[in-house]
Design a protein around this nucleic acid. Sequence first.
DNA 1: ATGTCGGCATTGTGCCGA
Length: 259
Amino acid sequence: MKIATFNINGIKARLPALLDWLDEARPDVALLQEIKTVDAGFPHAPFDERGYNVETHGQKSFNGVAILSKRPLEDVTRGLPGDEEDDQSRWIEATVVGKRALRVCGLYLPNGNPAPGPKYDYKLAWMARLRDRAAELLAAEEPALMAGDYNVIPQDEDASRPAAWAEDALALPDSRAAFRRIVNLGFTDAFRMRVFGPGHYSFWDYQAGAWSRDDGIRIDHILLNPQAADLLTDCRIDREMRGREKPSDHVPVWVEIDA
DNA sequence: ATGTCGGCATTGTGCCGA
């Protein structure tokens, strides 16, 4: 089963590029971030035609996450637990019924800039809630993954120019520590199970010719609990998507899971 | 070199968020 994460930066602007990618990459499940629309504004027909079930958790203008799945989705829940006051749409999860059940969580972690400040406080608080949910997914001892735009550069090797990000909310020590605390519960960064070393990115800014200079960062991650990690057979980044017409600033990252 | 997008409120363009 092929499961991908893709921050599309607006479903309306990205529909042609997204459909082309779906037709070529043919993921069984696609976890989308930054759909930037309310649920009613998310198109269904083009996905129905391709055999995808659609579940969304949108909001007006900003954020918003969705799951596309060729297999049935069960027990869909929306919103990261732990704060009734949080009205930002950044989390959706569902159980995908395949050879065996797999719990998939799609997330759009807060950017956190400028740091320090209230946005950075919100990022760290959100990550603490994410850790709590991650601990529950471990305790369940069933295959589960959390995939999305984490807005965290885990290590210097995950940035083309690490010094340029040193003071940024994506790379500050507290951000990295919060990410590590989640991984250290017992999760596996799927990409780093397959590929080592620098030069592998999932985001290139629209500004300053970042793509043409390959000035990228790796911030889109797929974390696997042990039961899912045992089933991992592949993980890759669809880098070439960044060079297409009207691209997102992120590219898809995907895993192949024997489930 | 504060350099580009997407969405929104709004009809020409500036703001926000990234």
